[in-house]
Structures are given as structure tokens and as C-alpha cells.
């Protein structure tokens, strides 16, 4: 019998494993409630992380919280929760309420931003963050800091020039960065086969002289192993990795999408059997860490947090209208704004 190689996830304590599970469930339940709030007319939009929780939790646990730089994919609710964003913050952003820490009601939901956790502000154009992440990584390297930059995106985003330019920089300067592609096989309705002629997104790494790794993005421990190794390597100065987490989005692209036009119900149902939470529950049960009672306990805790967040956010005001005109530029004694009018002067 060959001895199984030691994996980074072997180091995770029972408490950590259960914490990972808790975050997966918390993210899922928050997310489900967001869909409901949208259908109830209480939130104009939501873009979901359902089905992607394994890779998201894995990367959150593999990062050094508040030390590493993180440019999230817009589906990364679970990762942001791990890094310190609260369910209340998520709900405030969902509804565009005062107290939204991401943007004070300026951006659509899931455009995360939280400076204390080094969560860099997400914008809507896909892939723009990828070369920017090369910039934070270059800055870390030049300053001799042992920070790693992690940047997330979907497989559709890898068709943008930004992706290729970002990887090129990372390869040239051997940057401390991990590119994390959550390949859910669709960019809205467009199948990955119409996005690229290579089999794996990770195959593209070779063109830039960097490591590419494919992992089952629905397996939280396998994803953790790959993320931990990639981040550790980057921190040790061994260069960047492009991680491709294969996963699936069992819900429409966003609350504005209807996925029945572009894929079969059979396909979706088949993937639901590989739900990352179900898969992890099986592992935890096998290890004797989870049973039905414990599951219920986690669920009760999570639902209380979700209810609290929703109640809280529903009862907050919107930001004052005047706030929308503020903060275009920072204050500077070296800038003179003309007294006349407001536009540009």
C-alpha cells in the first residue's frame, strides 16, 4: 500500500473544518434569502455564489486574513464573510442602505470592498482587476513585503485582454500572486466551449511561464490544498499560480437571468448532486464530526444570523441624497476649484 502524501488540509483542526462548514452554510443561506428578497421586491438585484462555496471557503482559509491582498470575484460572498464582512453588511449592500460598507449605496450588490480586510473594491467590468492585482503584487514584492495577492474571476473573464496582460506581468516579474478562476462553465448563457479552444483555463498559464493547476472546485478540501500550496509558494517567492476551480452554477446567472433558455434541467439536476455542501457534509460525517443534530445546530445558528441581518437592513434608511454628490475627488490644498458652478469647477 502506497502511503498517501500529506496534504495541507490534513493540518486543519476539527474546529477549523467545522468552521469551514459553517461558512459554507452561512453563505448559502444568506444567498438564498437574497434571491427571496429580490423576488419580494425588497432588493433590485442579486448575483449569487450558490454552488461555488467550496472554492470560496477554501481560498478564504488559505489566505492570511487582513495581510494578503484580495480582489474578489463578484460571487465570493463566502470568502468575504470569512475575511470579516458580516451578514448585516451583505444585506445592507443588497438593499443599497446607509451603512453599506462597500460603497454607501453607490454600487450594485456583491461589489465588495472592505479596506480593513484588504478586500479591494470590485467593479462590474469583468477581468479589470486581474492586471491591477499584478500591480499590488508587484508593489508588495518591490517593498519586500511577504503579502500575497489573490484575485478571483470567472472563466468568461479569461477571454478579456486584461486577463492575459495580468498573467504576463505576473510571469515576467515572478509575482507573489494567485489567480483563481471559478470555472462554472457558463458566462451568463455562453458555454465555455465557445469561450476557449483549450480544455482547461489552467492550460493558459504555460503561455505566460507560470504554474497552472486544475482542481475540483466543489471539493472544499481539495480546493484548500491547491490554494494553500499556491499561496505558500507565492509567499516564498516561487512565483504565481493560475488555479482553475471547476464548478457549476446551479442557479441563474443573476436575478435578472433565466437559465432555461440555454441549458437543460437534467444538466442542472445532475450537478445539484455534486453540491459542495452535500459533498463536505459526507466527509465530515465520515470523520465523525457531523451528525443530524449538529447539522441542525449549525443551521439554527446561521438562520438566526440571516434573520437578524435582514431585519437590521430592512430597518435602515437609504443614504442621504446629498451623499451621492460627495467624494469624487479627495481634498487637496493643491487643487483650486472655481467658485462658479459645480461641474468640474
Amino acid at each position: 500500500m502506497t502511503k498517501r502524501q500529506k496534504r495541507p488540509s490534513d493540518e486543519l483542526s476539527d474546529e477549523q473544518l467545522l468552521e469551514m462548514y459553517y461558512y459554507m452554510v452561512l453563505s448559502r443561506k444568506l444567498d438564498e434569502r437574497m434571491w427571496i428578497l429580490n423576488r419580494q421586491g425588497k432588493a433590485s438585484f442579486h448575483i449569487s455564489g450558490i454552488g461555488h462555496e467550496a472554492i470560496q471557503v477554501a481560498q478564504g482559509f488559505a489566505m492570511r486574513k487582513g495581510h494578503d491582498w484580495y480582489f474578489p470575484h463578484y460571487r465570493d460572498i463566502a470568502t468575504c464573510l470569512i475575511l470579516g464582512v458580516t451578514p448585516r453588511h451583505m444585506m445592507l449592500a443588497l438593499m443599497g442602505k446607509e451603512g453599506d460598507i462597500f460603497s454607501r449605496g453607490r454600487q450594485m450588490p456583491e461589489h465588495f470592498s472592505y479596506k480593513p480586510a484588504k478586500i479591494v473594491s470590485v467593479s462590474s467590468p469583468v477581468a479589470t482587476a486581474i492586471p491591477q492585482a499584478a500591480g499590488t503584487a508587484l508593489a508588495s514584492k518591490l517593498q519586500g513585503k511577504d503579502e500575497v495577492t489573490i484575485v478571483g474571476f470567472g472563466e468568461g473573464a479569461t477571454s478579456e485582454g486584461d486577463f492575459h496582460e495580468g498573467l504576463n506581468w505576473a510571469g515576467i516579474h515572478k509575482l507573489p500572486i494567485v489567480f483563481v478562476c471559478q470555472n462554472n462553465q457558463y458566462a451568463i448563457s455562453v458555454h465555455v466551449s465557445k469561450q476557449m479552444a483549450v480544455e482547461n483555463v489552467a492550460d493558459r498559464a504555460v503561455a505566460y511561464g507560470i504554474r497552472g493547476v486544475v482542481v475540483d472546485g466543489n471539493d472544499v478540501l481539495a480546493s484548500y490544498d491547491v490554494m494553500k500550496e499556491a499561496i505558500d509558494r507565492a509567499r516564498r517567492g516561487e512565483g504565481p499560480t493560475l488555479v482553475e476551480a471547476k464548478t457549476y452554477r446551479p442557479v441563474p446567472h443573476s436575478t435578472a437571468d433565466d437559465d432555461r433558455s440555454y441549458r437543460s434541467r437534467e444538466e442542472v439536476e445532475a450537478w445539484k448532486k455534486r453540491d459542495p455542501i452535500l459533498l463536505f457534509e459526507k466527509v465530515l460525517m465520515e470523520r465523525g464530526l457531523l451528525d443530524e443534530a449538529k447539522k441542525q445546530e449549525v443551521l439554527d445558528r446561521v438562520m438566526a444570523e440571516v434573520d437578524d441581518a435582514v431585519d437590521y437592513a430592512l430597518n435602515q434608511p437609504y443614504p442621504p441624497i446629498e451623499s451621492a454628490a460627495e467624494g469624487v475627488f479627495g481634498d487637496s490644498p493643491l487643487v483650486k476649484w472655481s467658485k462658479k458652478g459645480t461641474i468640474n469647477g
Binding site: 479591494v120 479589470t128 492586471p131 500591480g135 499590488t136 517593498q143 486584461d162 496582460e165 495580468g166 504576463n168
Partner: peptide, 26 residues
């Protein structure tokens, strides 16, 4: 070379990398 950086011939990322560096202290 650490402060005067010859970049790849790629304007998008000249600006994008500059943005990232600006976020991180430069």
C-alpha cells in the same frame, strides 16, 4: 529597475498595474 520600470508593450496593463501599485502604497 525597481523604480524605473520598462513595461511590456501593453497600455491596458501599464495603467492597471499602476492602479494596483497605487492601491499598495506607491
Amino acid at each position: 529597475p525597481d523604480r524605473v520600470i520598462d513595461t511590456p508593450l501593453a497600455e491596458l496593463s501599464i495603467v492597471a498595474v499602476a492602479i494596483g501599485m497605487a492601491l499598495n502604497g506607491y
